[in-house]
């Protein structure tokens, strides 16, 4: 590896206390309940690449995203952007914060309804002192609106005057307003219709290429991730179970959960490819299965799997893969 990673995450862990209030616990004699939302997650993203996290609901994708951006304090682990570490107490230094922005799933909730679009987009410029005067600010806002496919005249409108897809364009313009080069996107198109999703995904790809953005892209949709990602990390119950480059992951999925997920996606191409029927549901994260947490659903599980947590070795965390066991 010659180039240093743009984003690096090492042994990230997040434990939530989900206990009942103290008094109720005392009365019912319950213990404290801890939920391990993210456990021992490590990955790195190269400059200009897209790293995607996929997994089913509750697998810990958003929790990782919020820790990486410093929005949520980690229980343990280290995070760095362009070699600048996240300080557990003070977050990233100001100079770095400008470079790191986030885009969320819900374009309705993430834009202040009382602000005009121009103000929304100018806000990060103000916060980081990037425009010398109002004229310069206006010019930059116009430029950003054009960049995301909107009209400079839209600056005077309010968010409710836009459709869901247009609002996501506004959110992207705001994220770019501080000249950010690392963008964390949490399900940016999950609330959109497919024709609008295509517009936004195409836009994000163009912007990434033109501005050499580094993206952490979160989605539960494997096909979306296939279109967007360079490298994919598959999560299950808070752990990364497989990390691979996109072509490799889809051509040769190795972890039994990755294979199950791929088999579960409806076959739009109608190729009639043969698939394993999917079994079971994601267990309750408060009392996860022992050993490899996937073992109750895994066709390859054996007694070792019930006891030992498999370590991530060479991109896969699975005993069967490591033992080269096919049954």
């Amino acid at each position: 590896m010659t180039t240093k990673p743009m984003v690096s995450v090492t042994h990230a862990r997040k434990v939530f206390d989900v206990s009942q209030p103290w008094l109720e616990r005392a009365l019912s004699g319950q213990d404290k309940q801890m939920l391990v939302a993210v456990d021992d997650v490590s990955f790195a993203i190269k400059k200009g690449e897209t790293f995607a996290l996929v997994g089913e609901s509750g697998s810990g994708k958003s929790t990782v995203a919020r820790m990486v951006t410093g929005l949520l304090p980690a229980t343990s682990g280290t995070f760095a952007i362009d070699d600048v570490p996240l300080d557990p107490k003070h977050g990233y230094p100001l100079a770095l914060r400008r470079r790191l922005q986030m885009i969320f799933q819900d374009p309705y909730a993430s834009l202040d309804p009382r602000w005009r679009v121009g103000q929304i987009i100018a806000e990060p410029m103000k916060a980081f002192g990037l425009a010398r005067n109002e004229d310069e600010e206006r010019v930059r806002v116009s430029h950003l609106l054009k960049l995301v496919g909107l009209d400079p005249a839209d600056a005077v409108k309010f968010p409710h005057q836009f459709s869901g897809g247009q609002r996501q364009r506004i959110a992207i313009a705001r994220a770019l307003a501080s000249d950010a080069d690392v963008i964390v996107c949490d399900e940016p198109t999950s609330a959109l219709d497919v024709s609008v999703q295509a517009q936004i995904l195409n836009l994000m790809k163009d912007l990434q290429r033109d501005l050499s953005l580094t993206l952490l892209f979160i989605s539960h949709n494997l096909a979306v991730v296939r279109y967007m990602a360079d490298v994919i990390g598959v999560m299950y119950l808070g752990r990364l179970v497989e990390v691979a480059r996109v072509e490799t992951l889809f051509a040769q999925p190795r972890h039994p959960y990755t294979r199950m997920l791929l088999d579960a996606v409806p076959d739009l191409a109608m190729t009639g490819r043969s698939r394993q029927p999917v079994q079971g549901e994601v267990p309750n994260p408060i009392s996860p299965p022992s050993g490899c947490t996937f073992h109750p659903r895994c066709p390859l599980a054996n007694s070792r799997c019930q006891k030992e947590v498999p370590l991530m070795i060479d991109g896969v965390a699975c005993h069967a893969v490591q033992e080269n066991r096919k049954t």
Binding site: G165, V194, Q197, A198, N202, A223, F250, L262, L268
Partner: peptide, 24 residues
């Protein structure tokens, strides 16, 4: 046609997704 072309697929990775401008 546009609708079908705008859906990302599992078995291939197009350079771009087909795009219908505008919204319903």
């Amino acid at each position: 046609k546009g609708l079908m072309g705008s859906i990302p697929a599992l078995d291939e990775r197009p350079e771009r997704l087909l795009q219908i401008e505008g919204a319903m």
